[in-house]
Amino acid sequence: MKIAVCVKEVPDPTAEKRIDPDTKRLVRSGENTLNRYDRHAIEEAVRLREGAAPGAEIAVVLVAPASASRTVDKALAQGGDRSVHLADDGLSGSDIVATSRALAAVLARDSYDLIVFGQQGSDAECYVMASAVAERLARPCVTQVAALALDGSSLKVKRQVETGYETLEVSLPAVISVSDAINEPRYPSLPAIMGAKRKPHEVLSLADVGLAAGDVGVDGSRTHVSALSKPPTRGDSVKLEDDGTAAEKILAFLVERKVVA
């Protein structure tokens, strides 16, 4: 069984996010790390590999600057067997349309039975990359997977939706994104960390995957950020100073809005 886990390098979530006013892009020059949601995707792939026939392998796939080697190592220490890294300066400024094109081009070079994504990126908080890549590869796609079991050449999955869970069966090859409730990712062990650099690392350019500069980056993107502004401050809040009647006022407020009867 061949599994690809698509991972993303994101700015360290403990640092404050900043947007460059000139480029209108998120500043990525600080500390970067592996998107925390992707740890669940790797963990789920590792569990599938543990239960699969010998020879099963996990490729960690990413589109990121060449400097992302630490993120690659982290993903491999977490359980990936090899990495496939599309690193090309021309990718800078890619939106979802362009990035999904690049990812699909990398994934199409190999015949993966299953492609796994984390549910979202912790930087742009976008949930749609799995769907976009599945569309490009013409594969079935299930997002927000909260539990899965391999059943021959198909996957039985429980999908988290607002009202509960959907139980679905999807035939392989397929694309899924897993929710962060699906598992508790293990800590990478020291031998795994030390072994990460020795695993095969494939670094590709746009030309290697048959793309031209205009297919990706700003030119290949279909969205353009024209302006950014802070969300408006909320004007409907009421501040109460307690002069002994605050409890009554809060109760009256809640009754008026029919929160309590």
Partner: peptide, 14 residues
């Protein structure tokens, strides 16, 4: 180096 940082980050998280 990368490996040293990854060891450090992992132990810190644990």
């Amino acid at each position: 180096d990368d490996e040293e940082r990854l060891v450090r980050d992992t132990v810190r998280q644990w």
